[in-house]
Structure formats: structure tokens, C-alpha cells
Computed example of a mutant assay.
Amino acid sequence: MSRELAVVTGASGGIGEQIAAGLARTGATVVLVARDRGRLNAARERIAGAVPGADLETEPVDLADLAAVGALADRLGERVPSIVVSNAAVIAPLDDRTPDGLHRTLVTNHLAPYLLLRRLAERPTTAPRRFVVVGGSPRGLARVPIDPGDLDPGNGRGLGWPPSFRPFTAYAHTKNMNAMFVYGLASKLAGTRTTVNGAHPGIIKGGRLNRHDRGALKVFGSLCGLFAAGTATGADTPLWLATADEVEDVTGRFFVKRRAVETAPHTTAPERVERLWRESARLVGLPA
């Protein structure tokens, strides 16, 4: 019998590694995607040690490189994954640009999952599929609406004060984009057997998200870490969405601690969701 194929981005540690291990325990073939080949192989060894008989593959791909993401979509699309968990995220300095000239946080956190999941969604299949996007806190993100016509934060506009916090605000914008993308893709896939849902993992310690923090943001991150939960807690809701029978037909929702919650009106307004879809398509080179 062929195994179910699952894909997890940002799987070289933290929440992503925990999600991948949980999927491996279901008997699925799990493709681990991350930028650093060494850390990716180390995660594969840890999962193999924790889950005897795990069927694991690695895809060392920099999700900030849109050409590489497109090539990954081509490779995976031939195999039609039944589960894809988009988990990878960074908080990069505002001057950190990708080969396409875009901000690394924007590309890694939003444009890469937009390109990957959209390309996979366009592959015809009659089998059920689940797409899960790991987002951010609906309550916290309510205060930082995006401008759907100006996604790149490199100019620093609208990112507030102090300057050391601006990379975090740019990250928060991409987390709102994640929720809006969930709603947009779910709407376009309505009536199919593919579900799309978002999840907030909580404030989690044990990852590398804050490795570029400086100044006041570094102090803030350290304080948050004192009260943060572990990576297993953060992985729980995304893994549940990817596997649980009770959400098999649920789509277009956002979950916190396994409960569906409402996100801010600026993330659900259909015209804003559609504007984000179209601008994202333009930036990745796809038709709207």
C-alpha cells in the first residue's frame, strides 16, 4: 500500500519538526522542507529516532527564493500531497532582500506559501487534501492591518516606533496575510475536496524565529520567552487540523487551541482578501 504524502515547511526544528514527527506517527511519508541542509538532516535523524519506521524525505529549499519554491511545487505536484503544513517563518531585518528584490520576511512568510499552495491546489485530484497555514494571534494582529496594494515593508512606512520593532511589525503584517490567504484560497476551492485552514500556535519557545532580534525587540522577545510554551504545544493545533476526523470537511476557518475563532474584519473583508490575492499573484508572476 502506498503511504499518504505529507509536506511540512520550516521542518528543521521547533514547531515544524514536531508537526513532522506527529505526521510520521500516522504512517505518512513526510517531506521535510527547510533552507539549511545540515539542520534539516539533523531533524530527520531526531524524528527517525523518535518514530521507529518513519518514512522521511528532505527538501533543502530556501523559501525566500521564489524560483526555488516554484521548482519545489513542480516536484511535489507530480506526487499530489494530501497534507501540506505551511509553517516556515522568519523575522528578518528590513534591509534583507531576496534574489527578487523583495523583503525576506514577506517572501518566506507569505509569498512562498501563496505560490506553493496555489500551484499545488491547481493540480487536479479527486482525493481529499488538507492545507494548513500556521499564522499568528488574531487578537494581537487586529491592531496591524496591511495595505493590500503595498506589501513590501522595506520602505519602513507604517511600521511604527521604535525602529528596532519594525521587523516584528513587518512579520505581524505577514501573519495577517496568512489568515487572508487562507480565506481567499478556501473560497476559490469551495466545492472541492481540498480544505484550507489557519492556526495560531501560541507564543512558543524553542525555535529560531527571533534570531535576528536587536535592541528593544530582543528585550521584548526575552521577556515573552519567560512565559512561552514548548514546541509540542505549538504543534498541537496545526497537527490536529492536518489529521483529525472532526475537521475533515472544515475549511476557511482559523483556529486557536483547536477552537475556531474570528479574526479581525480587515482580514475577512472580501475586497481586501481579493486585492491581496491579486497583488501576491503579481509579485510571484502568476495570473490573478
Rank of each mutant, 00 (worst) to 15 (best):
V85I: 09
R79Q: 03
D55R: 09
L151Y: 09
I203H: 10
L106E: 10
P148F: 13
G10F: 06
A232K: 08
R118M: 10
S164F: 07
A229M: 02
A50D: 14
E78G: 14
G221F: 03
D249I: 00
D100S: 15
A216P: 00
G234I: 09
G158F: 10
G234R: 09
S12N: 15
A170Y: 11
P167W: 10
G202Y: 13
A28L: 03
G53Y: 03
M1T: 11
N87K: 12
F165V: 03
K188I: 00
A42R: 14
F227W: 08
H200M: 11
V69F: 04
L286A: 06
G38N: 05
R44I: 04
A112F: 13
R3S: 06
G22T: 08
G198M: 09
L276K: 03
V51N: 00
E271I: 00
P52H: 05
A242T: 01
W240K: 05
G27A: 02
S222N: 06
E274I: 02
A142H: 08
A92P: 15
L159R: 10
G234W: 06
P113S: 09
H110K: 11
T251C: 01
F181D: 02
G53P: 07
D36M: 03
G156F: 10
V182A: 10
R35C: 03
G16F: 14
R39E: 04
A121I: 13
P270I: 02
R275H: 07
P265G: 05
F227Y: 07
Y114A: 12
C224A: 08
I83G: 00
M177E: 14
R129H: 09
A244G: 01
A6H: 13
G225H: 05
R258P: 03
L66Q: 07
R193Y: 06
I15H: 09
D236H: 09
P113H: 12
R139A: 14
H103R: 08
E4T: 10
R118A: 09
G16Q: 14
G202N: 13
V284H: 13
N176P: 00
L72Q: 04
T251H: 00
A142W: 06
K257C: 00
V85S: 06
A242K: 04
V90L: 10
G13R: 15
R37P: 10
V30S: 03
G160Q: 11
R75H: 07
L63A: 11
D245M: 01
T251M: 01
P60H: 01
V107H: 11
P287W: 14
P270C: 03
P163T: 06
A127F: 04
V256Y: 04
L217W: 07
G215E: 06
S187Q: 14
S12M: 12
L286H: 10
F254K: 01
T233G: 01
V134S: 12
A235I: 06
L209D: 06
T233C: 02
P138Q: 13
R3M: 03
M177C: 14
D147G: 08
R143M: 12
R75D: 11
T98A: 11
E122D: 15
R79E: 02
A172Q: 15
V80T: 06
I204A: 12
L66W: 07
P124E: 07
R282T: 04
V219D: 03
R282L: 10
D96F: 05
P81Q: 01
R259V: 04
A127Q: 14
